[in-house]
Design a protein around this nucleic acid. Structure first.
Length: 768
DNA sequence: CAAGCCATAAACCTA
DNA sequence: TTATGGCTTG
């Protein structure tokens, strides 16, 4: 049941404006979900619209599920015929019915990333593209962006004819697309692109769906990309009852293809648009909102709006500057603990939002030391990340070869051609001679049957020996650096050049910073000492149990969430905004970064604490950064700067001033910025931060330390003679099943592709 | 040129 | 866990 009484004036207008194009600019915390659900209920109950004619589109399945639930609750009978889904699943439904018009079969398959990669592998082979320089993943990345912008292979080729590198990509794109078509397959992006093509080429189909979807609503509209916009424009073209809800100030996914022009130009594309601004915020205090408004005001390309609240001003924002990142993290940890022990807050009222994943390490450590339970959202604990574990395994091996697990972990990482067969031989030799694995490696000449692997193993052993001999002469930093570079580990990640791989580089660099601080803060730093310190931190993290914990995540993943108390560490130029944006030729990059700041600030309900460090260890080098320009955009009267902190105020005064607002006792040495330092080092570095690159946990295990992810299915529900169905190969007859150790091996004779041998736990065969 | 070893794919259906 | 193709090497 729609209930207009629970809505404010603007929300009510948004609900009542059912006809024509409507642009709802819903600021952070302004209750947009409530508006959408009420609007749907109102359409059905008051305007007599058939639920069948309503479509609501979201971005994620999760969001679709939530909306479905809330709509069901409110509408009741008939709600199941409302089309609530994501862009992609809508397209699948449409294409399953009509894609034959485009020369595909309606039984098309959808290729996942793995499938895409194997297609691309073939393509590269065929076109003789060297995948050492140009990774399949990288090419697929270009193709995906092209598809988001609806750039066809032909157009892509003409646009990139001059660049050698890109012309290769263009060739690959063309070949890739042809291969997909031949296999009657679509990739994820094709779902959208082909639906648009379908509508453009078949007016009757378009007309059918236009008649069907008389009322269309799109959530998180600021995140739409060009194809998605085209798609809804086509659908809404006839009745023009298109209602989009979004906030241009929260568009932070440009790097994923979102096109902010879609929201900025909406009124131009749809004349006679009713624009409704939801500006009353129900989340934050007055001071927090003012700060957010003042920051976002500095962006030029935006719809003017200004959030307000009838809540009280609340506490001032807190800004603390520290001498270094340690004190910053320490402060946050203590402040949280204090807030909790005072009884006013629980741990889960606190969130710590940072710009880059690597920043989590220091905070994690300090939280652990202070016994503050925390949970890392959308990420993995720093010391559990694969790349960090790899580096630590190298260090352990150098320290002493006794940790067999560590040695086995890295003996073939990066790949150096030492495979399972050789390792098994070494293992046997070690066992029968009562040696550690590494001792056996050193002895590898004597191991029978190793053959040419001996050379490879010796190279590895020598590398470790060389590093070992440096102990005591070279710094640990230098040793870790030679691991990073000498093994080619970092280089491999950099050439991969994906969001994920670059985040991994960042994490390794963060470990390097950790090494340097260890050396600086310890009288007699040793490798063993360092490993011990790390082990302590790395092991304690089982302490988190229960549901009350502090939340740690990137600002990107915090979109849509709210917390009573929010901490924003690392508010420094160079970190946030990142150097990449500061030095970018494209002025809109900094605007995107500012929107991110806006999102960050508006997550806070009661209390916002921003912190920055005068000196920060980045990539093993101490950087002296200015205070973030975004902080300077916040008027001084909103901020409690407190007393200048830090036990030793050595570098005091070298810090940037507090912007335009004069303030009490502020050491305003504005623009004194860089303390004569290595900005250049940052420029030459590739390792920029792309957000949201949730680095996967460490699944990889050395093949000798193999885990048991798949348990043998106890018994199969099919046997020889049974008819079974396979997702890719279709229907077939089981010829035989064989007990093969942990798994069953099944031989199936498929009707279309002939006999195939497969593993039961992989193939997920269904008896029919 | 043959042997042997290494690396990888076989699955799920993601914004 | 195993089959397979590709690569290296004697």
């Amino acid at each position: 049941m729609a209930n207009l009484d629970l809505l404010n004036e603007m929300q009510r207008r948004a609900v009542l404006q059912t006809e024509g194009p409507v642009l709802i600019l819903a600021g952070a915390g302004s209750g947009k979900t409530r508006v959408i659900t009420n609007r749907i209920a109102y359409l059905i109950e008051e305007c007599g619209v058939n639920p069948w004619n309503i479509m609501a589109i979201t971005f994620t399945n999760k969001a679709a599920g939530e909306m479905r639930e809330r709509v069901d609750d409110m509408v009741g009978f008939g709600s199941e015929s409302i089309w609530v889904s994501t862009f992609h699943s809508s397209c699948v439904k449409i294409l399953r019915r009509y894609i034959d018009r485009l020369g595909y079969e309606n039984s098309f398959t959808i290729y996942d990333t793995d499938d895409q990669k194997s297609v691309m592998k073939d393509v590269c082979k065929k076109l003789q593209i060297d995948t050492k320089n140009l990774k399949e993943k990288t090419i697929l990345g270009y193709i995906s962006s092209a598809k988001n912008e609806m750039i066809s292979p032909a157009k892509f080729a003409t646009e990139n004819a001059t660049d050698y590198h890109m012309s290769k990509v263009a060739m690959a794109y063309k070949e890739y697309q042809e291969t997909l078509k031949k296999s009657n397959a679509l990739d994820f992006d094709d779902l959208l692109v082909l639906t648009v093509e379908l509508f453009e080429q078949c007016p009757d189909v378009l007309d059918y769906y236009q008649e069907r979807f008389k009322y269309i609503m799109v959530d998180e509209y600021q995140d739409t990309n060009t194809v998605q916009f085209r798609l809804i424009s086509l659908l809404a073209d006839k009745y023009k009852n298109l209602c989009v809800v979004g906030d241009d100030d929260q568009s932070i996914y440009k790097f994923r293809g979102a096109n902010i022009r879609n929201i900025l130009d909406f009124e131009r594309v749809f004349p006679e648009t009713t624009v409704i601004k939801l500006e009353q915020n129900y989340r934050s205090t007055g001071n927090i909102l003012d700060a957010a408004n003042e920051v976002i005001k500095n962006n030029f390309g935006r719809k003017s709006k200004s959030l307000w609240t009838d809540k009280e001003e609340g506490e001032l924002l807190t800004l603390k500057t520290f001498d270094n990142g340690f004190e910053e993290a320490e402060y946050i940890a203590r402040d949280i603990r204090q807030g909790v022990s005072s009884g006013e807050f629980s741990y889960s009222d606190h969130a710590c939002l940072y710009r880059t994943n690597a920043q989590s390490r220091l905070i994690e450590e300090k939280l652990i030391q202070n016994n503050v339970p925390y949970k890392l959202i959308g990420g993995v604990n720093f010391y559990q990340r694969k790349e960090v574990k790899d580096m630590l395994a190298y260090l352990k091996t150098i320290d002493n070869g006794r940790d067999d697990v560590a040695v086995k972990r890295i003996i073939n990482v990066p790949k150096r051609g030492i495979g399972a067969t050789s390792l098994n031989r070494v293992e046997d030799y070690a066992a029968s001679n009562d040696l550690t694995f590494f001792e056996a490696l050193m002895d590898c000449e004597r191991i029978p049957g190793l053959g040419k692997a001996v050379t490879k193993i010796n190279e590895f052993v020598n590398f470790i020996r060389v590093q070992r001999s440096k102990l005591g002469y070279n710094s640990l930093k230098e040793i870790l650096e030679s691991i990073m570079d000498g093994t080619g580990y970092i280089e491999e990640l950099k050439t991969e050049n994906t969001e994920e791989s670059l985040a991994r580089v960042e994490n390794v660099e963060e470990l390097l910073s950790k090494v340097v601080t260890y050396e600086e803060s310890t009288d007699e730093p040793t490798l063993a000492g360092f490993l011990e310190e790390v082990a302590l931190i790395a092991d304690i993290d089982n302490l988190e149990s229960g549901s009350d914990y502090v939340v740690l995540m990137t600002i990107h993943s915090a979109k849509g969430l709210e917390f009573p108390k929010v901490y924003l560490p690392g508010m420094e130029d160079g970190l946030f905004p990142s150097y990449m944006c500061i030095n970018s030729d494209d002025p809109t990059d900094i605007e995107e970064e500012r929107r991110l700041a806006y999102v960050a600030i508006t997550r806070a309900m009661k209390k916002l604490t921003m912190t920055c460090a005068r000196a920060r260890m980045l990539r093993g080098e101490t950087q002296y950064n200015k205070m973030s320009r975004f902080i300077k955009e916040i008027p001084g009267h909103l901020v409690d700067k407190g007393q200048s902190t830090g036990r030793s105020t050595v570098g005091a005064g070298s810090f940037g001033g507090f912007g335009t607002q004069p303030r009490t006792g502020a050491p305003t040495t504005a623009s004194s910025g860089f303390g004569g330092m290595s900005a250049a080092d940052l420029f030459k570095s590739n390792a920029f931060d792309k957000p949201k690159s949730t680095v996967k946990p460490d699944n990889s295990m050395s093949m000798l330390v193999k885990g048991n992810q798949m348990s043998k299915a106890d018994g199969l529900d099919y046997g020889p003679g049974d008819r079974v169905k396979h997702i890719k190969f279709g229907v077939g007859t089981v010829v035989s099943t064989e007990d093969a150790g942990r798994d069953y091996e099944v031989l199936v004779n498929f009707d279309t592709v002939g006999p195939k041998k497969m593993f039961a736990s992989f193939a997920k065969l269904k008896k029919i």
